[in-house]
Simulated scan of single mutants.
Amino acid sequence: MAKATASLSMAYRLHVASRVLAALACYGLTSLISIVLALIWPIPQAQAVLSSIMLSFAIYAVLIMWVFSVKSLRTIWLTLVVSSALFGLLAWMLLPEAGV
């Protein structure tokens, strides 16, 4: 068992750690997506919030599966950063206090 763990290179360990961090970063993106969904759905506010929160569980699961299925770390991080920036900007623009 010790030989199997010792044979893993440091680059491989960093690769896996980066994917785990990206999976954790998906939580922030999922939160931003659910905020935007709650703001744009044309249903009563309480129902929109609850619906977007329920949908966020599925979104988070899909994002985590996507993080571990894409081959390029650059693609993963670039997509997460750009998507988070876009959804963050969209959420900020849609908030009622943003116009003040």
Rank of each mutant, 00 (worst) to 15 (best):
96 P>R: 01
33 I>V: 10
23 A>N: 08
28 G>I: 09
88 G>Q: 08
23 A>K: 03
47 Q>I: 10
85 A>E: 08
45 Q>M: 11
10 M>S: 05
53 I>H: 01
30 T>A: 03
43 I>V: 11
35 I>G: 09
72 S>A: 11
86 L>Y: 04
91 A>I: 13
57 F>L: 14
74 R>I: 15
39 L>G: 08
28 G>Y: 06
31 S>Q: 03
5 T>V: 08
31 S>Y: 02
98 A>R: 01
24 L>K: 05
31 S>R: 07
3 K>D: 15
58 A>S: 08
90 L>A: 12
41 W>T: 08
36 V>E: 09
71 K>G: 15
99 G>K: 00
91 A>G: 13
74 R>P: 13
63 L>P: 00
36 V>K: 04
89 L>G: 14
12 Y>R: 07
62 V>W: 00
56 S>M: 02
10 M>N: 06
60 Y>E: 07
25 A>F: 01
23 A>C: 11
78 L>H: 10
3 K>F: 11
70 V>T: 13
22 A>Y: 02
21 L>R: 12
67 V>Q: 03
5 T>F: 02
36 V>F: 04
40 I>F: 11
92 W>I: 13
10 M>C: 05
63 L>V: 03
38 A>G: 14
69 S>K: 13
93 M>C: 11
14 L>Q: 04
80 L>K: 09
63 L>Y: 00
35 I>A: 12
96 P>G: 07
24 L>A: 15
41 W>H: 04
31 S>W: 00
68 F>S: 02
98 A>T: 11
55 L>R: 03
81 V>K: 07
70 V>C: 08
41 W>E: 09
78 L>D: 09
12 Y>L: 08
87 F>T: 09
80 L>N: 05
77 W>G: 06
96 P>C: 05
28 G>M: 07
19 R>G: 09
50 L>Q: 06
13 R>F: 06
69 S>V: 00
74 R>E: 15
1 M>H: 04
56 S>L: 03
97 E>Q: 14
85 A>V: 14
87 F>R: 07
27 Y>E: 05
64 I>N: 03
93 M>F: 09
50 L>Y: 02
2 A>G: 14
27 Y>M: 11
14 L>Y: 03
84 S>W: 04
54 M>F: 01
96 P>I: 04
2 A>E: 15
19 R>F: 00
73 L>E: 14
48 A>L: 06
66 W>L: 15
87 F>P: 15
66 W>C: 15
80 L>R: 08
43 I>T: 06
14 L>D: 04
8 L>Q: 02
63 L>F: 00
26 C>T: 10
